[in-house]
Design a protein around this nucleic acid. Structure first.
Lengths: 243, 243
DNA sequence: GCAAAAGTGTTGACAGTACACCCATGC
DNA sequence: GCATGGGTGTACTGTCAACACTTTTGC
């Protein structure tokens, strides 16, 4: 459901006190092994008609904010069971010119390879933008993305979320690239490799079959079960993925 | 403003779509150098009349959620300029029996020594409870406090929030006790001392004057300016207070 | 003198950093 | 054969955990 103020049935809801409207917005990060992207939609209606904005929509009365974000994401991207996490409520009084609207903001991670852009309904088109090359954005969405980036950095250090952005099997340099993009630094290839494997949370998946102009790299997969076991036994560090 | 459904003026507000009500709730942590407490109020009205609950109230249309939490806290506790941070939105459809109410939840830290309990207005009384000895709670407030504790542990490792809970000058054992209470572990006295001072963020404040049955301990204060400088210069670790 | 709580220093183990060298592949 | 990207190893360094002895004070 995009921002949409049509009202077919002309119902009216009344309250003794003023209530704000509540919407969820999603900062959807996508990775293709090379670059980190954010999903944006072009607004088909005013305000900010023609501007780019975060996918999002209004909360229904029979769903939680998580369900709302999930639903919106599914409608926009056709992906389900995706990592999704609320990170902030934006509530500036004048953040929307129409009426008082709170945004409960989520960040979401998707594998770009598993994702097909839907031809926009509501005359809105959806497109990926490189994280460091975003267009100007509607509402306070620039600020929302900024905070999402910070939050993502933080979560990256203590939850195994990077693997949500990679295919089941991946090579170390893809994982490293992702860490470098998110944390905006560079790491020593050999030390990164060593420290990752030291967690003993990776399974060997044989050599990469794709022909490339170098020695065939080792493929790995992340062992979710072993991770959960370590968490359960508390044999894991507080920030196991802090690089 | 407590939960209060009186409406003197009998105004009515209408919307084309259903809007949820939005409230803020505060998990207020207080420390006295010995024990960690949470502030609760006794509800004077139904639902859950007579039960203990978190201080909180409804969002006004001319304030952000942060301002709302700040205002509520000031009305309840008479303290201002307190550390306050939103940490989660609770939005289960049936979390309040009256109507659909979202709770934007905050955690707050106060020095108990600077705090005076107000005789409750709205026939509600406010009281401190030891964190590990809470009464049964209204709504989903038990769950809210649980998450607040987790979030507090997390924030403790990367922000200098412990000092919000201590007097300006303090002794190391008070700081250590606080870390132990929040993180639910124990630390070696000497290593804790050493590691804290290694941050070079503490100023010497002379010996403790209070007579006690031991050698007079050293008093310290936290140097906020030096901390901010280190953050600015990025000469600080990602988790400088991780113990 | 003794209990309580505080101050200080040493040591070994392990983790993190900075490097260098070799290997397979495509052109 | 050379550029590209990948694999492995070593040595140094610094941080962290474990631990013992001394100091002051009140009773």
């Amino acid at each position: 459901m995009r921002y949409n103020y049509d009202n077919m049935e002309n119902k009216i809801y009344t309250y003794k006190y003023q209530h704000p409207a509540v919407a969820t917005d999603c900062v959807v990060f996508g990775y293709d092994g090379k670059n980190l992207h954010v999903l944006l939609i072009e607004r088909g209606i005013d305000p900010f008609k023609g501007s780019w904005a975060l996918p999002g929509g209004f909360l229904k009365m029979d769903e939680t904010v998580e369900e709302c974000a999930q639903r919106e994401l599914q409608e926009e991207t056709n992906v389900k069971n995706i990592y999704l996490e609320q990170f902030h409520v934006f509530s500036a009084v004048d953040r929307d010119p129409r009426e008082r609207i709170l945004s409960v903001s989520f960040l979401a991670l998707v594998r770009k390879s598993e994702f097909k852009l839907i031809a926009g309904d509501d005359a809105a088109k959806a497109e990926w933008f490189e994280i460091n090359n975003l267009p100007s954005l509607a509402f306070d969405h620039k600020e929302i993305i900024e905070l999402a980036k910070n939050k993502l950095q933080q979560i990256l250090s203590y939850k195994p979320i990077a693997f949500q952005l990679l295919d089941k099997t991946f090579i170390m340099s893809e994982l490293q690239r992702l860490y470098e993009l998110i944390n905006e630094t560079e790491y020593d290839r050999r030390n990164f490799h060593k420290k990752m494997l030291a967690t003993s949370l990776f399974d060997d998946e044989g050599l990469c079959k794709t022909p490339m102009q170098c020695r065939a790299p080792q493929m790995y997969s992340f062992n979710e079960e072993r991770y959960k076991e370590q968490v359960k036994n508390k044999t894991i560090k507080k920030y196991p993925f802090d690089f």
